[in-house]
Design a protein around this nucleic acid. Sequence first.
DNA 1: ATAAACTATGAAGTGTGCTTCAAGTCAACA
DNA 2: TGTTGACTTGAAGCACACTTCATAGTTTAT
Lengths: 142, 142
Amino acid sequence: MYSAKEAAEKTGLSTAALRYYEKEQLLPQISRTSQKYRQYSDSDIEWIKMVQCLRRANVPIQSVKKYIALLVQGGKTMEQRYGMVQDYIRNIQEQMDQLHNALALTREKSAFYEKLLKEPSSRDLTYLEEWELFKNEEGKEE
Amino acid sequence: MYSAKEAAEKTGLSTAALRYYEKEQLLPQISRTSQKYRQYSDSDIEWIKMVQCLRRANVPIQSVKKYIALLVQGGKTMEQRYGMVQDYIRNIQEQMDQLHNALALTREKSAFYEKLLKEPSSRDLTYLEEWELFKNEEGKEE
DNA sequence: ATAAACTATGAAGTGTGCTTCAAGTCAACA
DNA sequence: TGTTGACTTGAAGCACACTTCATAGTTTAT
């Protein structure tokens, strides 16, 4: 069993965030010592890590809450949960697509700068000139 | 040249968002018709799309603003901009890692549900049982 | 035994990124 | 001519995800 502080250290969340998650019902019942202090079990920590994993994929707290509510309701909600998980997967894939595009753009920019930084003459480019040059570079790729 | 509404349609942003971006100095000077209405050029639209690309990669507005301010200052800030782009790249890669993890988790969950949904007996699982089963499944993967 | 450190609670505050509102101007059509 | 409809502005409002604060009780170390 872990204290609030230990749980925070183990998960990388603040104790305030852990309390917030609990209040928002993203966590199962966290047991208490002598009716006062929270005690996080290993299983609680695991659960929190799962929530964190979803949160890092930008799943809204309300959605996680809904998923967990269904989970607690048990087996009869399995189809619904399956549906939610499918939505998560689609959403994550879409985000990866966007990141993929942004990575391509920034890598092109990076390569562009690397090239220009080798030519001292390019130091006097105005932003309009740079923009035009960059757009031409982009065009070349395909 | 495009009106506010047309620019909004072309970019998928609202006219209010376009004005907000302009106010926050994420866009170059947008020209005006007869001292009043905005006119977006093709080049403006391109610029907006670049901003959108960065925004979709969760680059904060203040960071885009800073990058653009450097860009306008010209060639002498090229190293700084190069540095910013490197940071963007690292950040995007980190986000992709997180999404990768979340995708793995959700795909496992999905596969788990697909298996369970084939067995009518599993309909009566409590969430604790499901959780245990799922954690065991996870362990198996490696 | 008392200070330092930790925990509790509810309520209020914060930062980000827009959206919505209020109040007015401008252009075009019926 | 007047009434839509698109545009303008600044200001206020909102959703989200926490964080911080004020206040108070508990535990631990010296």
